[in-house]
Write a protein that binds this DNA or RNA. Structure first.
Length: 208
DNA sequence: CCCTGATTCGC
DNA sequence: GCGAATCAGG
């Protein structure tokens, strides 16, 4: 069954996406797979994040018919003779977005260093429910978390004006977000930020 | 092997 | 429209 992309889930997707979280991570917090996340993100039109790969020349059949219609309509708009080979696609970085540098980002930029410390939705007060409430268990199953967790100074990228801490189970009637005023540059309010930024290396074991 | 995102294509 | 399968780079 297809995921119900409600306004709330979409809003969350957008928010998390904007925060720079990885697709897999967004998926975990949203209880969907990374594929679903990236797929939806595409359809939503948002998706200008650094891609690890270039993926340009594939084994796609590309019959001779593809070369047709070059002259027909698009006068001088479309004319890509296709690069000869390994074209180091100069990743079209955000057009006019103050995207943080990549280099320094590794040390102190995005709130999601990935693979080490990540803001995860720890089970709020509704954890007793039992359902797929976001949880933060398994602190350090492996030694990957060698570095200490520290969000340090977040880049001033206020995403929303309300804490997006999830309360309840997404998809259920009672689900809603905290809504309180978040900390500057963070998606959560002061209280939830404390719970959110914990060390954790959870994998994908959604319950939904 | 782990991770990442991108694209395809059956549903 | 959705997302698993697949691809592809780090």
């Amino acid at each position: 069954m297809a995921m119900e992309w409600t306004e709330e889930t979409i809003a969350r997707l957008r928010d998390l996406w904007q925060q720079g979280l990885s697709t897999a991570e967004i998926g975990r917090q949203l209880s969907v797979t990374k594929n679903a996340v990236v797929g939806k993100a595409h359809r939503l039109g948002l998706k200008p994040r650094p891609s690890p790969i270039r993926r340009a020349a594939k084994v796609v059949p590309v019959p001779a018919a593809a070369a047709v219609e070059t002259t027909a309509s698009s006068a001088a708009t479309e004319s890509t003779p296709a690069p000869p080979k390994s074209e180091v696609t100069a990743a079209p970085v955000a057009t006019a977005t103050p995207v943080p540098e990549k280099a320094p980002a590794k040390a102190q930029a995005a709130p999601a260093p990935a693979q080490q410390a990540k803001p995860v939705a720890a089970a709020p007060a509704v954890a007793e429910d039992g359902p797929p409430a976001p949880r933060a268990t398994r602190a350090q199953p492996r030694a990957t978390a060698k570095s200490a967790l520290r969000p340090v100074s977040e880049p001033r990228r206020r995403s929303s004006q309300s804490c997006c801490w999830p309360l309840g189970d997404p998809g259920t009637p009672g689900f809603h977000f905290c809504g309180a005023t978040p900390l500057p540059g963070k998606p959560y309010c002061a209280e939830h930020a404390q719970l959110a930024y914990v060390k954790l290396r959870d994998r994908r074991d959604n319950v939904a």
